[in-house]
């Protein structure tokens, strides 16, 4: 089904609004900047947004549907990023042709992308229905993204179960919107709470960061212009770990040096 040597990575969460598309966009740019030929496939064709986060919304002419139908070549449908030519976007389809795509179609598109790219990131739609089944058909490995909230973790657990039954391997975890202060005060699920419950290796932690909103406003992912914001650093580190580099993970509650952080650590120490 897929070209040898190319990695097909599904980015999914189950719950909507936890940061799948933002991660796909930032990770795509970060990988491209590190010299990896990267394609981002927007599998969410009902409500597609990856084009918007990448600032490519005005440049889409064709989609994977036209490629599969033979009415255009893959090159015509791929939207190359101007500043980062290693990155190309392919929307799976448009909302008007909802019933059109099937899991086999996604596999065919994935195989075609494999001829030109080292990594294909597949932005999965929220939910666990047909859109998910389409997206997972094209994937070999997965990144599950969640936030330290009960609803997001519960949905992530559901998705992990489905990924396991589809034989997707490895599955790694990204914990998004971490608030170190709340974690230190034990008013937010800790990193180990989430990794213990979901039993997945942690690929990265992304702190809550206002710059993410600023960057989506502009259609310029944080990883594009080398900003030093905490989220940008996190996304770059995720890209490096994904490529096999050893980059240490920071424990957000141990990062602070102030009195508050020290007190927080004291309060979470197990006494018996």
């Amino acid at each position: 089904m897929t070209a040898p040597g190319t990695r097909y990575i599904l980015i999914c969460s189950g719950k909507g609004g936890v940061g799948k598309t933002t991660l796909t966009a930032n990770l795509g740019i970060a990988l491209a900047r590190q010299g990896v030929r990267t394609a981002v496939l927007d599998a969410d064709f009902g409500l597609r947004n990856l084009d918007l986060l990448l600032g490519l919304e005005n440049r889409i002419v064709f989609t994977a549907q036209e490629v599969l139908a033979g009415s255009c070549r893959l090159e015509q449908a791929l939207v190359k990023h101007k500043q980062e030519p290693n990155l190309a976007l392919l929307p799976a389809g448009n909302p008007r042709m909802l019933e059109w795509l099937k899991p086999e179609d996604m596999q065919r598109i994935a195989a075609m992308l494999g001829e030109q790219f080292d990594i294909v990131l597949i932005d999965c739609p929220a939910g666990i229905e047909d859109g998910f089944k389409n997206a997972v058909a094209a994937a070999q490995e997965a990144i599950v993204i969640t936030t330290p909230e009960v609803s997001a973790v519960r949905d992530a657990d559901r998705v992990i179960g489905l990924l396991n039954s589809h034989g997707v391997q490895p599955i790694q975890l990204v914990l998004n919107r971490v608030r170190p202060k709340m974690m230190a005060n034990q008013e937010m699920l800790s990193v180990s709470d989430v990794t213990d419950i979901l039993a997945l290796p942690l690929l990265g932690l992304v702190m809550e960061d206002e710059q993410v909103i600023v960057s989506t406003n502009r259609g310029e992912p944080l990883t594009l212009n080398g900003t030093k914001s905490p989220a940008a650093l996190a996304y770059n580190n995720i890209a490096r770990r994904l490529r096999g580099e050893e980059v240490p993970l920071l424990d957000p509650t141990k990062a602070g040096r102030g009195l508050r952080a020290k007190l927080g650590r004291l309060m979470t120490t197990k006494i018996f």
Binding site: E149, V150, V153, R154, D157, R158, M183, N185, Q186, E187, M188, L189, S190, D193, I197
Partner: peptide, 17 residues
């Protein structure tokens, strides 16, 4: 602290899920 409550509720609901 609410994190403990969250953890316990999650563990229970996930066992059923």
């Amino acid at each position: 602290a609410s994190a403990n409550v969250a953890r316990e509720r999650l563990q229970l609901v996930l066992a059923h899920d």
